[in-house]
C-alpha cells in the first residue's frame, strides 16, 4: 500500500515492561487481549491516517541488543520517534528512565519525538508509580506522557498515533529534513519528487509541507 510518509519508531525501556506486547497490540489489532496470553513481537508495521494522509509506521523493538553499544546508537539515530516505556508496577523501571533518556538524547537526532509510556495500567492494585509522577517526569523533560495497557489495549492506539502526529507537525513546520532518510522519515514512493536534484518540489497531494527553512 502506498503512503505519504513512513515514520520509523523505536521502543526503549527496561526488559519486561511490555515493549514487544505494546508493539504487537498496536500493529496487529486482531490479537485479542486475553488474560492468559502474553505475546509480543520485535517488529511491526501499520498504516494510519493523519490529516487525511496515509502514514506508515514501522516499529522496531531494540530488546536484547543493549549489550552492544554500536547497535543502540545506530537505532536511536535512525528513528523519528521513540516510545520510552516503564512498568507502573515496578518502581525501578521508572527510576531507570533518566539513563534511558540521556542515552536517547545523546545518540538521537535532536528532533526525535519521545513519548513516555507508563505501561500495565490494568494492574492498578499493584501500582508502584503514581500517574502524577509519570506526568511530572514527562513535564520536566519535555515529553508527551500516557499510561497504557498492552493487555486491555487502553491508550495503545493513542500513544503511537499521538507520537506520529507530533512528528507530522514537525514536518509541517519544516523542522525535520525529510529528504534525509537518516532521520527515520521516508517519503512515500509515489510522493518522492521525480527529479531527485530538486528536493521538496513536485510531490503529489502537497505532501511536501515544510521543506527546508
Amino acid at each position: 500500500m502506498s503512503y505519504a510518509y513512513l515514520f520509523k519508531y523505536i521502543i526503549i525501556g527496561d526488559t519486561g515492561v511490555g515493549k514487544s506486547c505494546l508493539l504487537l497490540q498496536f500493529t496487529d489489532k486482531r490479537f485479542q487481549p486475553v488474560h492468559d496470553l502474553t505475546i509480543g513481537v520485535e517488529f511491526g508495521a501499520r498504516m494510519i491516517t493523519i490529516d487525511g494522509k496515509q502514514i506508515k509506521l514501522q516499529i522496531w523493538d531494540t530488546a536484547g541488543q543493549e549489550a552492544f553499544r554500536s547497535i543502540t546508537r545506530s537505532y536511536y539515530r535512525g528513528a523519528a520517534g521513540a516510545l520510552l516505556v516503564y512498568d507502573i508496577t515496578r518502581r525501578e523501571t521508572f527510576n531507570h528512565l533518566t539513563t534511558w533518556l540521556e542515552d536517547a538524547r545523546q545518540h538521537s537526532n535532536s528532533n526525535m519525538v519521545i513519548m513516555l509510556i507508563g505501561n500495565k495500567s490494568d494492574l492498578e492494585s499493584r501500582r508502584e508509580v503514581k500517574k502524577e509522577e509519570g506526568e511530572a517526569f514527562a513535564r520536566e523533560h519535555g515529553l508527551v506522557f500516557m499510561e497504557t495497557s498492552a493487555k486491555t489495549a487502553a491508550n495503545v492506539e493513542e500513544a503511537f498515533i499521538n507520537t506520529a502526529r507530533e512528528i507530522y507537525e514537525k514536518i509541517q513546520e519544516g523542522v525535520f529534513d525529510i529528504n534525509n532518510e537518516a532521520n527515520g522519515i521516508k517519503i512515500g514512493p509515489q510522493h518522492s519528487p521525480t527529479n531527485p536534484s530538486l528536493p521538496g518540489t513536485g510531490g503529489q497531494g502537497g505532501s511536501q509541507g515544510g521543506g527546508c527553512c
Binding site: 553499544r69 554500536s70 545506530s74 534525509n180 537518516a182
Partner: peptide, 20 residues
C-alpha cells in the same frame, strides 16, 4: 551540515561496530 553529520555518525557507527 546535515549530510556531513550523517557521514560522521555513520563512521562512528562503523567504528563502534568494529569495536563491539
Amino acid at each position: 551540515q546535515n549530510r556531513l553529520s550523517d557521514l560522521v555518525a555513520e563512521h562512528l557507527d562503523h567504528l563502534h561496530y568494529l569495536n563491539d
